[in-house]
C-alpha cells in the first residue's frame, strides 16, 4: 500500500504539487491521471526519494522509501524508460539491477521472457531500441526484484495496442495476487481500461478521486423515452435538471434509479436508461487539459 499525505513541492514560484493526499490500496490498480505538467511525475519522484518534498510524506507499506534496506525487492519503479545508457545492452541493464539487488542471476533471463524481449533483442544496445522495447525493458527492471508494489510513470507510452493489452493483463494479474499498482497516464482511455481506482490531478492539486465505478457513476444518467418532452417535464417537476443530448436522449446528473422512479410515477414508458459512461470523467479531464493547454483554442 502507498500512502501519500499532504505532499507539497514548490519549484521557485511554481507549485508543482499542492497538498496531495491519496492512497493506493493493495490488490488494486490505481490510475494517476492528469494532463502533462499536472504534477504526476513530481509526485512519483517524491515517492521514491528522488525529490524531496517541502511538506508532507509518502510511505510504502508504512515505511519511507529511503528507509527500505533493498528497495528493489519491495518496490518496482519505472519512471522513464528512456533514461538508460544508450551504450548498454538490454540484458546488461537488467543484470545491473539484478546485481544491485543481489538476487539470482537466472532472474534476468526470466524477466526478458516475461516482457517478451528475445535473446537477440536483449543483446542489442538500448540506443537502438524503440520506445516500446524500452518500456518492456523498464517494466522488466521494475519486476525483477519481485516487489509488492509497482510505481510506473506513463508505462503505456510507446506501446502498440497489443502491448497495452499485454501490460493491462500483466498489471491486472499483479494486483489480483495482492500487489499494489500505481500507474500514471495523461490518457483517460488508458487509465479507464487498466485502473480500479482513479486519482485525477490538475495543476498540482487532486481534483477527483475514487473507484472507477463510482467516478463513472457520478457522471450521471442517460435516459430515452418515446415521449421525450413529457419525460423532461416530469423530471423538472421533481426538481431534477435534465437536458437533451445528442441522439435523442436526455442527460441528467440524477441517479438512474431516481430517474426510473420519476418515469414510473409519471407513467412514461422508457426505451433506454443507463449510466452515462465516462462522460463526466472525460468532461472533467478535458476541462483540466484545456486549462493547461499551451496551444490557442482551435479556430
Amino acid at each position: 500500500m502507498i500512502a501519500i499525505e499532504g505532499l507539497t513541492k514548490k519549484y521557485g514560484t511554481t507549485l508543482a504539487v499542492d497538498d496531495v493526499t491519496f492512497t493506493a490500496e493493495a490488490g488494486r490498480v490505481t490510475g494517476f491521471l492528469g494532463p502533462n505538467g499536472a504534477g504526476k511525475s513530481t509526485t512519483l519522484r517524491i515517492m521514491v526519494g528522488l525529490t524531496r518534498p517541502d511538506t508532507g510524506s509518502a510511505t510504502i507499506s508504512g515505511r519511507r522509501y529511503v528507509d527500505l534496506p533493498n528497495p528493489g525487492l519491495d518496490v518496482g519503479v519505472l519512471l522513464d524508460a528512456s533514461a538508460q545508457h544508450a551504450g548498454r545492452t538490454g540484458r546488461e541493464i537488467l543484470t545491473l539491477a539484478q546485481q544491485y539487488m543481489g538476487i539470482p542471476r537466472s532472474r534476468v533471463e526470466e524477466m526478458l521472457e516475461v516482457v517478451s524481449l528475445t535473446p537477440a533483442e536483449a543483446s542489442r544496445r538500448v540506443g537502438d531500441y524503440s520506445l516500446g522495447m524500452r518500456q518492456r525493458l523498464g517494466i522488466a527492471t521494475a519486476l525483477i526484484g519481485d516487489p509488492e508494489v509497482l510505481i510506473l510513470d506513463e508505462p503505456a507510452n510507446g506501446l502498440d495496442p497489443a502491448g497495452i493489452r499485454w501490460m493491462r493483463d500483466l498489471l491486472r494479474g499483479y494486483a489480483d495476487r495482492g500487489g499494489t499498482v500505481l500507474l500514471s497516464s495523461h490518457l483517460l482511455h488508458e487509465i479507464e481500461v487498466i485502473a480500479d481506482d482513479i486519482v485525477m490531478i490538475g495543476l498540482g492539486r487532486i481534483v477527483s478521486m475514487g473507484t472507477k465505478t463510482a467516478l463513472l457513476h457520478e457522471a450521471g444518467t442517460v435516459v430515452r423515452a418515446v415521449d421525450l418532452l413529457a419525460l423532461e417535464l416530469a423530471l423538472a417537476a421533481s426538481g431534477l435538471t435534465a437536458a437533451p443530448a445528442d441522439g435523442g436522449v436526455l442527460y441528467t446528473d440524477a441517479d438512474a434509479a431516481l430517474v426510473g422512479r420519476v418515469a414510473l410515477d409519471a407513467g412514461i414508458a422508457l426505451t433506454e436508461l443507463r449510466a452515462a459512461t465516462g462522460a463526466g470523467l472525460e468532461e472533467m479531464f478535458l476541462e483540466l487539459t484545456a486549462a493547461t493547454q499551451r496551444e490557442g483554442a482551435p479556430a
Partner: peptide, 18 residues
C-alpha cells in the same frame, strides 16, 4: 556524470536511495 547526462541516475538512485 553519466548518471546525470545519460540519466541512468533515475534507476541507480532508486535502487540505492542513498
Amino acid at each position: 556524470t553519466s548518471e546525470w547526462s545519460q540519466r541512468t541516475g533515475l534507476t541507480t538512485f532508486t535502487l540505492v536511495p542513498h
